[in-house]
């Protein structure tokens, strides 16, 4: 955050100078956050420089930076980082694009059909992740899955495709399921920002005989930009943390082709019980997210 930007906001409002941490109204929240998040975060930081294997009786021992240097040479960790980035950004970009396209298509559609269509396209967002995961795993099955059955009946494919059991297809297949649940979010986002465009602005574009694309590019896009940026950040955070879909659909396989960071950390912490190593992974993860967030905030501020 640039100090200048903060200052601008600061001056535009009445001065009610109080130091943030001394503000009585923030204190209850901060206390609760310190207890339920602060403490776990600190203990994660401390664990990350220790060897602490739950499985043997030995007490945690300080190992300095060893966990981190081990991670640097850990092939699966880098695969997991790559998969996480593909999973997160692949989902968010495609879902944002689809959501925006749907919102633009439905923008001028009124009446019962339009309302019904709007209600339908947002419904996947209300489907719990576990359900999405089981549902798509069922749909994707190589034999007995409805997707292959339909494609074969239509003559599009000759033999069943192992959607979740091919190293190259599994991650995209999960991403498609994830896009299915994420698109409605962007649809709602764009739809509400489109409805926020003053009629006068659109009217003047019409008077100028601006084409559909020109109107979209010059008028609508600027209104959609910021909600999309903030919305994508929220979804990036959510998808970095997304566990249920990958875990239920492939458990990170085949091979390590769908192992994301969250799956890898879960396996390290709760299958191999290497809490120190898992905590070090978590610390690196936090740094990754912070960098992403910082870039995003810069993007947001860049507009001013």
């Amino acid at each position: 955050m640039r100090p200048g930007a903060a200052k601008k906001a600061h001056l535009s409002r009445p001065m009610r100078g109080r130091a943030p941490l001394l503000d009585g109204m923030v204190v209850p929240t901060l206390i609760v956050l310190a207890l339920i998040i602060g403490y776990p975060v600190v203990s994660t930081l401390m664990l990350s420089v220790q060897q602490y294997d739950l499985i043997n009786d030995a007490a945690p021992s300080y190992v300095g930076m060893r966990n981190f240097s081990d991670i640097a040479s850990d092939q699966i960790f880098w695969t997991a980082v790559k998969n996480t980035l593909i999973y997160t950004f692949g989902t968010v970009f495609v879902a944002a694009f689809l959501g925006a396209a749907m919102a633009l298509m439905l923008e001028n559609l009124n009446g019962p059909f339009g309302n019904a269509a709007r209600a339908i396209v947002v419904s996947p967002w209300a489907v719990p992740f576990v359900v999405v995961a089981f549902l798509f795993r069922f749909i994707y099955m190589q034999k007995g899955g409805v997707l292959n059955a339909v494609l074969m009946h239509l003559g599009i494919i000759e033999a069943p495709i192992p959607w979740l059991n091919d190293s190259d297809l599994a991650l995209p297949a999960i991403i498609v399921a994830n896009i299915w649940t994420t698109t409605p979010f962007f649809f709602l986002l764009v739809a509400s920002s489109l409805s926020g465009i003053p009629d006068a602005v659109l009217e003047s574009a019409r008077v100028d005989r601006a084409g559909t694309w020109a109107t979209l590019y010059h008028i609508k896009l600027p209104y959609m930009r910021n909600p999309l940026v903030i919305g994508s950040l929220l979804m990036i955070i959510a998808n970095f943390n997304d566990f249920a879909k990958v875990w239920v659909m492939t458990q990170g396989g085949p091979g390590f082709s769908t192992t994301t960071l969250v799956v890898y950390v879960y396996r390290m912490a709760f299958e191999n019980f290497r809490l120190g190593y898992a905590s070090a992974l978590g610390v690196i993860w936090l740094i990754l997210l912070l960098v992403t967030a910082a870039l995003y905030f810069r993007l947001l501020r860049g507009r001013d």
Binding site: P162, N165, D166, S167, D168, A170, G253, P254, G255, F256
Partner: peptide, 10 residues
């Protein structure tokens, strides 16, 4: 098993 899956799927 990751290796087995790789053998089977790639």
């Amino acid at each position: 098993m990751a290796g087995v899956q790789e053998a089977v799927t790639s």
